[in-house]
């Protein structure tokens, strides 16, 4: 059996569940609805098949996740990914960090920000705006959260407007949720492909 990966990487690993995924052929109507399985979309990841064990929460989580990460307007998609990476660094969710680091790299067309974050963690030196975003996400993700009025002021000073700040709060907070599922219910293992 492959050993779990413990180091941050921008190469998306495979994800091996610690709780058995449901079998699609055994899914109840509620589970199928939550999985959003349609005749044209029969491929469902093990991760989502694990979460289908709580179909009521999964049904609400999927559209909420998509809205926070992909809705129009507000914070750029790349910077929402940076918020997700900040949370995933604090919580050491190797899988989440890999997925969202690779998306950041694609959207920003720049790998140096993630390289610095993976090398130096929370202390990574970034430009003013990136630093304000990453630092806020890191502090909001601590337990208990440590984000302060000064961290909020740093976002304004770096040029973020209220709509952008709201989207950053949402994306960083959302990964307080996602990390607590992905990191606890399975292991990142060698391989390339979505969970």
């Amino acid at each position: 059996m492959s050993e779990p990966i413990h180091a941050f990487t921008a190469t998306v690993p495979n994800w091996r569940p610690r709780v058995a995924p449901i079998r699609l052929e055994d899914a109840t109507p509620d589970q199928l609805a939550a999985l959003q399985v349609t005749p044209s979309n029969l491929k469902v990841s093990d991760y989502v098949l694990v979460l289908a064990r709580d179909s009521e929460t999964l049904r609400d989580r999927t559209p909420l996740f998509n809205a926070i990460m992909y809705n129009r307007g507000g914070l750029s998609r790349a910077e929402r990914e940076l918020g997700a990476v900040g949370a995933s660094i604090v919580n050491r969710c190797i899988y989440c960090a890999a997925v969202h680091a690779s998306r950041y790299n694609q959207l920003a067309k720049d790998v140096t920000v993630i390289e610095r974050i993976f090398a130096d963690g929370e202390a990574a030196e970034l430009n003013l705006r990136q630093s304000a975003i990453f630092n806020f996400a890191v502090k909001l993700s601590k337990s208990p959260p440590e984000a302060s009025a000064a961290d909020m002021a740093a976002l304004s000073a770096a040029g973020l407007g209220p709509e952008e700040v709201l989207d950053l709060i949402l994306s960083a907070a959302l990964f307080g949720w996602a990390n607590r599922l992905m990191h606890t219910l399975g292991d990142p293992i060698e391989g390339d492909g979505p969970a």
């Binding site: 709780v19 694990v50 979460l51 064990r53 709580d54 929460t57 999964l58 989580r61 909001l140 993700s141 959260p145 984000a147 302060s148 009025a149 961290d151 909020m152 002021a153 304004s156 209220p162 700040v165 709201l166 709060i169 949402l170 960083a172 907070a173 959302l174 307080g176 949720w177 996602a178 990390n179 607590r180 599922l181 606890t184 219910l185």
Partner: peptide
């Protein structure tokens, strides 16, 4: 099933706590 239910509860509340704190900081600013 209950392991996933417990995990979702803890994960959701962790999100809600951070959303609430972030909104409060925004409101104060």
């Amino acid at each position: 099933d209950d392991i996933v239910r417990l995990s979702e509860l803890v994960a959701f509340v962790s999100y809600q706590i951070r959303l609430t704190i972030g909104l409060r900081l925004m409101g104060a600013a």
